[in-house]
């Protein structure tokens, strides 16, 4: 996968136990700002730790905290899988 391909991976596409580094953001501004206020900034590492029984939402580990969000919301963050 080339650099261009990498830029198009979103947090919403990660599988359980997959780690990634946040690289950018795109999409709904209110949600982006909310996630960034909670510390999900470019350069930070995240891991999808849980996927709900019906496939959505997902829980993301960020430092020592865990935040659950819907995939539609997770799709505002671009990531680079580890």
């Amino acid at each position: 996968m080339g650099v261009e391909g990498l830029a198009n991976v979103f947090l919403s596409e990660l599988k359980r136990q997959q780690r990634a580094r946040i690289t950018g953001f795109t999409g709904r501004i209110a949600i982006t700002q909310r996630l960034m206020a909670m510390g999900m900034l470019p350069g930070r590492d995240v891991e999808v730790v849980q996927v709900a029984p019906f496939g959505d939402p997902v829980t993301v580990q960020l430092d020592s905290g865990r935040v659950s969000l819907r995939r539609s919301e997770a799709s505002v963050l671009q990531v680079e899988p580890a």
Binding site: A30, I31, R34, L35, M38, P57, T59, G65, R66, V67, S68, L69, R70, E73
Partner: peptide, 10 residues
Amino acid sequence: TKPSPFVLEM
């Protein structure tokens, strides 16, 4: 109204 994000801390 605008939907609020479902961002929920565990």
